[in-house]
Design a protein around this nucleic acid. Sequence first.
DNA 1: AAATACTCACCCTATTAGGGTGATTAATCC
DNA 2: GGATTAATCACCCTAATAGGGTGAGTATTT
Lengths: 209, 209
Amino acid sequence: MERNIRIVMIEDDEIIREGYALLIGQADGYIVVKSYVSFDDAVKTIMDDAPDVILLDIELPGTNGIAAIPKLKKMLPGAHILILTVYESEKQIFEALANGASGYLTKNTPAAKIIESIKEVREGGGPMSVNIARMVIKSFQRNQESPLSKRETQILEQIADGKSRSQIAKDLFIDLETVRSHIKNIYLKLDVNSRADAIRLAKENKLIK
Amino acid sequence: MERNIRIVMIEDDEIIREGYALLIGQADGYIVVKSYVSFDDAVKTIMDDAPDVILLDIELPGTNGIAAIPKLKKMLPGAHILILTVYESEKQIFEALANGASGYLTKNTPAAKIIESIKEVREGGGPMSVNIARMVIKSFQRNQESPLSKRETQILEQIADGKSRSQIAKDLFIDLETVRSHIKNIYLKLDVNSRADAIRLAKENKLIK
DNA sequence: AAATACTCACCCTATTAGGGTGATTAATCC
DNA sequence: GGATTAATCACCCTAATAGGGTGAGTATTT
């Protein structure tokens, strides 16, 4: 028989915390080892809980969830962190993932879906709520109506990689003056006059990655 | 009563094509309007099919799936494109999403899950197979053991945004010489001696976004 | 006590960036 | 078939930039 999956919750709202803990604990093979109201509260003893999965809220008293992620990863490198929050701002989602979260669920998620997500994350998946997945996929999508030509886009991407004109010329097997010419056209089209402005504008409008 | 969801498949393998078409077509509210063996084959008449969702394979004779995406989006701006393929290479996944795919499923996906994904994508979701979601989430994660300090990371990110030393100094309210000092330390730690190399290495190792 | 992080200072020079103006060829679009 | 766009290259100019060297103070963390 397999070992139970050990789960720890960090969530300040008592009703949500106890409610989810109860429902998840009832599932076969899942055990909610402990629940904490904050990271600062959890930090003392969470290592003894030996969790496989940590359900983490973002809006917490004291250390917030985003900041807690790298600390938890350091203390428990093997544990998977699943964000469970009402917050859906792009910035928070991407920061949470950048910091090491393995999944991101919003709080309207039914317990059954959370249980499934815990299983999924243990199998190397990346569970996300439907709306989160949409935002994540959207973040990859480029603008289909770019004013820049293919060559110009390519050169602007190399500029964003920090390359100098001469490096770009060498890498693309074209003359330095040609590169200059392209850059001038890029600046003209984007109505800017510096690398920084061109990159900022191009990223804002998803013209480059 | 609601209108049926109109689906078009582009898939060169006859068995997969006909099999999925049959199973999806049996579902209530879903109709597989037409199936094509390639994009080049589909391009002539697909606009008359008025699909809501296009199930698109990547490995196709003639125009491959990745290249077909922007063309399809241009012809049918309202249609959602779902990639359905055996390919799981990072590059292909990210290129497909960059080109405008709304979801990415691997071919072991059961028909029921595909039907669910079609519904999901119609509701603004971003359906992905478990392993795809993992790769996508992983692509956001930063290296937790960066040799760079916070300030150094911040400055390197600004360099990657194309800013000059003096611009960075102004934006961070520190002296130009301090910026220089940080950059020197960054180069020392990363063992490089140019912006381009620093950015490349930092991105390769996920030290910056 | 030692190491790291963050700050600033002054030496130096080759390279770079950006502006201006113009030209050729090829492809694509009405 | 005339016009626009893309891609290539040329030569004018100057202020700013990048990168290397070397050193040093303060504060925080270990």
